[in-house]
Design a protein around this nucleic acid. Structure first.
Lengths: 175, 175
DNA sequence: CCCTTAACGCAAGAGACTTCGCGTTAGGAT
DNA sequence: ATCCTAACGCGAAGTCTCTTGCGTTAAGGG
């Protein structure tokens, strides 16, 4: 029998908050430090999350869940908002953590669920419009370059550059 | 005065080989284990590479350096070979290590040099042809999706899929 | 309200990681 | 051939990471 409420929930939020603080301050996240800040005992963190990677992954997914899919009314507006928000996320204090999470999460069955949920949401966004690109096209032509710039060049894209990727995507559908 | 030859070189290759073996066997690479297999003392590894991440990064760059840029005679042939080889590399036993190296390397000045060298080589490949795409276009339209599939979907592309990305790239130059 | 037990706190301890000093080996310049 | 010293081997010691057993707290069902 699981007990998600009450004390467990408080522990969870306290630990999450400590992780977010450390990330925003640019410090490296160790279990010892998280335990110190959150007031939660180290052994508890080890038992619930196992490793630092697992903990960070949990936090990142939590953050991403609170980032809704755009709904502006037009296809171009949705795509622009989606691209710009993604570029901004990668430029933020979390930045590479998203990439790291993807790296870890792709090996983890439980975290794959998040990717699936997100994929369904984005597909829903595309389904609201006529003549929309496919989910794969969106990922390959818009999302992949945004990730790539942040990963390899260590320089996230600005809003205008992100929108130019949307231009390229749409130009393939309307030759 | 540096001494790259003789014993130092033997130590280096012995350590590298041990790392490659561990990676191919799917075991996790610890400095203790590498020292065991290579017959090199732990302290030596710590002194030369500092951390496991640094060591793995060094090995990965070494491997990548031995992967020359294609030269088939035609633009399409070069691009196809480049894309297919990259997809194959990501599907191999190293796979995610390349991604991890990119993640670590982009924070490390010394490793940036490799990326720069590689960029120059690829630019040279493009310069051999008329009406070639830019380096940025190649990276955004071909390389980024290949990385993205391996990273997020945990499923590297096959040769045909890699070539279709080249199709997309060339179709943008010849509408 | 009571009972079961999931989840936590605590502390001890095993084990891994990392550093350091010192003696030895051998690269490479003279 | 000789010398200087970079690089390595060795072992000890310190630090950090992670696990484990046990007692305590409180979530949630009856």
């Amino acid at each position: 029998m699981q007990r998600p409420g009450g004390r467990s929930a408080r522990v969870r939020t306290a630990v999450h908050q400590a992780v977010v603080e450390l990330l925003q301050e640019g410090l490296d996240v160790s279990i010892a430090e998280v335990a110190e800040r959150s007031g939660v005992h180290q052994a508890t963190i080890y038992r619930r999350w196992g490793t630092i990677a697992g903990l960070i992954n949990d936090v990142v997914i939590e953050v991403l869940r609170q980032s809704p899919v755009p709904d502006t009314g037009t296809l171009r507006g949705d795509l622009d908002a989606y691209a710009v928000q993604m570029a901004r996320d990668l430029a933020g204090p979390f930045g590479k953590l998203f990439l790291r999470a993807a790296l870890v999460g792709s090996e983890n069955a439980e975290d794959q669920i998040y990717l699936l949920e997100r994929g369904i949401q984005v597909q829903g966004m595309l389904d609201r419009h006529e003549n929309a690109p496919t989910l794969i096209e969106l990922m390959e032509i818009v999302q992949a370059p945004i990730y790539f710039h942040a990963l390899v060049f260590n320089a996230p894209l600005g809003p205008e550059q992100a929108k130019s990727l949307v231009d390229r995507l749409l130009s393939l559908r309307e030759p």
